[in-house]
Each structure stands twice: as C-alpha cells, then as structure tokens.
C-alpha cells in the first residue's frame, strides 16, 4: 500500500488505467493471440487432431504453392472481394443518400434495409438457395418458366454460381453500411450545404465537392470493414452449397471454406493452419494498403 501511496499522480493514473485494461488484455491474449500464435506453429507441423504433432518444416507451404485448388480458391476469394466491396459500397451509398433526404416512412424503410443484417446468415442462405433452384421449386426459375423463358442454372454452374452466392451476402451487409453512411451524412455540418445553396451550386458539385470528400473517413471504415468481411466469406457459401461444398468444381470455394474442409473433413490440421497463415497475411496486407490509400490527412 505504501508503495502505491508513494507514486506520483501520473504513475497512479497509469496503474489505474492498466488495472482496467488488464481484463481485455488478458482476454485478447488468451482468446486471440495465443491461438493465432499456435496456428503459426501448427502450420510447420503435421497433425491429424488426434495423434501427436510432428515437425515438417515448410512442407505445408510447398504443398500449398503446388496445389491447383489453392490457386483457384485464391482467385475466388479475390473475386468475392473485388466484386463485393465496390458493389456494396456504391449500393449502400446510393440508398443512404436518398434515404437521408426522404422523410416519408423514413424509419420503416431504414428498418427494412437493416433487417437482413440482423437475420441469421444461415437462414438467409438457405432461403436464397431455394430461390435459386430450378423448376418446380425455385422462385426465380418458376417466374422465368411462367414467361416461357429458358431456365437459368444459378448454382449448378461454374460461371453463375459465384455471383449468385455473393448477391445475398451483399444484401445482408447492406443495412449496416447504410446506417454507417447515414451517420456520416448527418455528421456533415448543414452550414456547408447552406453556403453552397447561397452560391447557387448544382447538386453534382455539392455531391462531389462537399458530401463525398467529407465522407472519406466513413468510406475508409466501410471499405476496410467490408473487405475483411468478403475475404472471410464462409457462411453464405457453405450453406448455399452444402451438397457440394464450394462447388460446382470449386467455383465458389473461398479460402475459409478450404481451410474448414482441410481441417475438419480431411483432419489435416498442419495444412489448414498454413492456409490460415496465408489468409492472415492477405487480410493484413489488404487492410494496410487500404488504410494507406484512403487515409485522411
């Protein structure tokens, strides 16, 4: 106790700060950092989850490099990112921009957009999976058949399956992004718009010179957040393709699904850990690059 009494106020503040921080630090250490570290270690080992682990050096990484499925999956993962992020960013901005101007049933509409975000991804994926079926059960194809239009293979196709799986994933995340955008829009001082009005500036100039530049921090957040989400996409793909996980012919398989499959169907934990390390590295690089590119002054 005397030890504490002898501290300066500054030091006491530090002690207090750290005693409050201790819990989250401990939590992150045990729940996040310890398993992350272990994953790095396991990626240099061979382990089937039951027996003992044996060291294999860089074998898992070499196998990964020479695995054609990995490169296919790598491409898919970036397809999810490169289609998903811009599409969801533009859509959510357009919706938020117009929703912000709308007063009639504003709250109800906002709720409708936010609802999918609160819905379980599993339930949503299954409903969409059934929408996509052919006749006689698929909603979309039944409508097409009603007009005499040929069937579209949504999921049983190597070209259509990925966009088909991505669509509900984008829709699900939209509500959250709309809310964030609207908060960003509200944070822009009204005086800027009033000044623009007095100067007689058109809406396009207002949008590009005032609204968008001031939304930059919001956009950085959404881009980073949704990029990480799309790079880690799993639930939608897994649930919409349980009959042929990541299929057909690996055309929808993202990296996380490959990790899951290697670890919990193949019980090849070392190889799965190596894939995890690669995913970690990708996430890290993408996030850092985005932060740097979009950093506000």
């Amino acid at each position: 106790m005397t030890l504490y009494r002898n501290l300066t106020i500054k030091q006491k503040q530090i002690v207090w700060a750290w005693s409050f921080l201790a819990l989250p630090v401990l939590f992150y250490g045990v729940i996040r950092f310890y398993p992350t570290g272990t994953a790095f270690v396991i990626s240099f080992q061979e382990w089937n989850l039951l027996g003992s682990r044996t060291w294999t050096g860089f074998d898992n990484y070499v196998t990964l490099w020479n695995d054609p499925v990995f490169w296919k999956v790598f491409k898919n993962t970036f397809a999810y990112l490169l289609i998903g992020t811009p599409v969801s960013l533009v859509l959510s901005f357009v919706i938020a921009y117009h929703l912000d101007k709308l007063r009639f049933m504003h709250n109800f509409l906002r709720m409708l957009y936010f609802l999918p975000f609160m819905t379980s991804a599993v339930a949503m994926a299954w409903v969409w999976r059934w929408f996509y079926q052919g006749v006689p059960i698929g909603l979309f194809n039944n409508i097409l058949a009603g007009f005499g239009i040929p069937q579209i293979e949504f999921l049983n196709s190597t070209t259509n399956a990925l966009p088909a799986v991505l669509a509900p994933a984008i829709w699900a995340g939209l509500g959250f992004q709309v809310i964030i955008f609207m908060a960003g829009l509200r944070a822009i001082p009204v005086s800027f718009y009033e000044a623009a009005k007095i100067d007689g500036v058109g809406w396009w100039t207002v949008l590009t010179q005032i609204t968008l530049p001031l939304l930059k921090p919001t956009m950085v957040f959404i881009v980073v957040f949704s990029s990480i989400g799309f790079l880690r996409i799993f639930d939608h793909v897994f649930n919409m393709t349980t009959n042929n996980p990541g299929g057909p012919l690996n055309s929808t398989k993202p990296l996380v699904l490959m990790i899951y499959d290697t670890a919990f169907n193949g019980f090849n934990m070392g190889y799965a850990a190596a894939q995890t390390v690669v995913l970690f590295t990708i996430l890290l690089i993408v996030s850092l690059v985005q932060l740097r590119l979009l950093r506000s002054e």
Binding site: N156, N244, P248, L249, G266
Partner: peptide, 20 residues
Amino acid sequence: VNESGQRQALMDMVSRMDIE
C-alpha cells in the same frame, strides 16, 4: 481414408461431364 474428399472426387467427375 477421407470420405468427404473421396466423395468430392466423384462429385467433380460428374460435374465435369454435366456442366463442362
């Protein structure tokens, strides 16, 4: 030795004929 992996090989076999 890995039922789901071995099943996948046969599923892909049929997909390649069916789709491709």
